[in-house]
Structure formats: structure tokens, C-alpha cells
């Protein structure tokens, strides 16, 4: 009975995905975050909420770009009215700018801490709390054990976490579901008008568990993240990184 066996295996795979925080099309018809072509990179073609995502931002400029992208994602999650918690060790975020990315800055609670240990504790506590739409943490470094704890927490609470890793050292392996790298791209205005246009990013999905990593050019226009078509086909990155997730 090979057909039955295949059924069972696919069912089990779906179960595993669900337990890890991925959602299936059957249970949620309306996804919170719709990134267009980027969706194909994720299992079930749905952006995994209820998971921890990490962003590599070694430089200030990259951190700014990642902040913009994360705010855009969190803004989508906050549409349902939840609050957002922003934990950081050395915060330079300017709250009024969040409004541009669809977040009401007064709905964000900032927690500014001195020590990484405290920040990680606060992050874990915040992720445990199911009344919250998104938790964003700016911390220099996170170890595998620490990220594993966070993953176990979000599997229970279904809160979405974003970690901005600001360390310049080579990133160590973590238990996060995805690893992103956002770098700024030069903006363009229509018809070559001089001046600075809408934010544009080179969005690299370096790792995604059970999905296909890729890279896209994206732009934030009219309150949406839009993929710029000329490089829409996902670039398959090295086999090595695929396995590491």
C-alpha cells in the first residue's frame, strides 16, 4: 500500500510544519503578511507567523534597512489591533518614522535595557504573552541554545518574533525559522526625476526551514512591500546553506 504510506508521510510532514509554527493554506485562508512572489519561498507558500525570524545587520545602514523591512512586516501583523514590543540594548530607532511603515508609534512599547541577558529574558517573556502581535529585539548576538528556547516559546504562544542581530562577527547557527539579510538599494523615481525615492531593499532570504531560500529586490510603496520584477526569479543559494536551516 504505497499510496497510503505516502499519505501518512505527507500528513506527518504537515503536522510537523504546523507544530513548528508554519501554517497551512487550509487553516488560514487570509494570511497576515503577503509578500507576493516571496511567498513561494516558504512552506505552504505562507509567511510563517508564530515563529522567530532573524535578520543579519552588521552595519548601521543595513540595520536601518532591516528595521524598515521588519516594521513593514510588523505593521501588517498589527492590523488586527495587537500591540508591538520593541526590545533593544542600544536603541537608535526614531518612533515617528514607524508611521511610514504602517505602525502607529504609540502602540509600540519600547523596552531599553543595558545588558543582553536582561534583553533575552524580556524577549522570552514577551514572546510568551499571547496578546501581542509582534516582538522585535535588537541584540548583538544570540546563541543556539537561547534561540532554541525562543522557538519553543513561540510554538506555544504563536507570537511572531523578529531578531535584529547587530554583531559584526560571523553569524552562528540559530534555531530561528528564517535568516534574512536586508541591504539598501539605490532608489529610483519615475522618469528619472532627481531626488530620493521610496525605500528599496535587496532582500536576501539566506535560510528558511523547509523552504527555498532566495533573493529579491523590494520596494516600499503605497503602504506595501512590492517586489521589483526584473529580478523576480528566486536565486538558489548554495546547497550548504539550504541544509543548515
Amino acid at each position: 500500500m504505497p499510496a497510503v504510506k505516502a499519505d501518512i508521510i505527507s500528513q506527518l510532514q504537515q503536522d510537523i510544519l504546523r507544530m513548528q509554527g508554519f501554517r497551512s493554506k487550509l487553516t488560514d485562508t487570509v494570511p497576515d503578511i503577503d509578500l507576493g512572489p516571496v511567498n513561494t519561498a516558504f512552506p505552504n507558500a505562507i509567511f510563517p507567523t508564530g515563529a522567530v525570524h532573524e535578520f543579519l545587520c552588521a552595519f548601521r545602514e543595513h540595520a536601518a534597512a532591516a528595521t524598515g523591512f521588519v516594521s513593514a512586516l510588523a505593521g501588517n501583523l498589527m492590523q488586527r489591533g495587537g500591540a508591538c514590543i520593541w526590545i533593544s540594548v542600544a536603541r537608535t530607532l526614531f518612533p515617528p518614522s514607524l508611521k511610514t511603515f504602517g505602525i502607529e508609534p504609540d502602540k509600540v512599547i519600547f523596552i531599553d535595557l543595558q545588558r543582553i541577558k536582561d534583553a533575552l529574558w524580556a524577549l522570552e517573556e514577551a514572546l510568551k504573552c499571547d496578546g501581542i502581535a509582534a516582538v522585535i529585539a535588537e541584540i548583538p548576538e544570540i546563541s543556539f541554545t537561547q534561540s532554541r528556547r525562543l522557538q519553543l516559546v513561540v510554538e506555544q504562544s504563536k507570537v511572531t518574533g523578529f531578531i535584529l542581530r547587530t554583531s559584526t562577527r560571523a553569524a552562528s547557527t540559530t534555531a530561528c525559522v528564517t535568516r534574512w539579510k536586508i541591504t539598501p538599494l539605490s532608489s529610483e523615481l519615475e522618469d528619472g526625476i532627481p531626488g530620493v525615492g521610496a525605500p528599496r531593499w535587496h532582500v536576501e532570504l539566506l535560510k528558511v526551514r523547509n523552504g527555498r531560500p532566495g533573493a529579491w529586490k523590494m520596494e516600499w510603496t503605497d503602504g506595501k512591500c512590492v517586489v521589483i520584477p526584473d529580478n523576480a526569479t528566486p536565486v538558489i543559494v548554495q546547497e550548504q546553506q539550504l541544509k543548515a536551516g
Partner: peptide
């Protein structure tokens, strides 16, 4: 439904 900042869970956190 849409508790936002007023959710008791947030205050307790």
C-alpha cells in the same frame, strides 16, 4: 477581540 494595549495580558507582561 482587538484589545491592543488594553489587553490584560499586556499589562501583566
Amino acid at each position: 477581540g482587538n484589545p491592543g494595549l488594553k489587553a490584560p495580558a499586556v499589562a501583566e507582561l
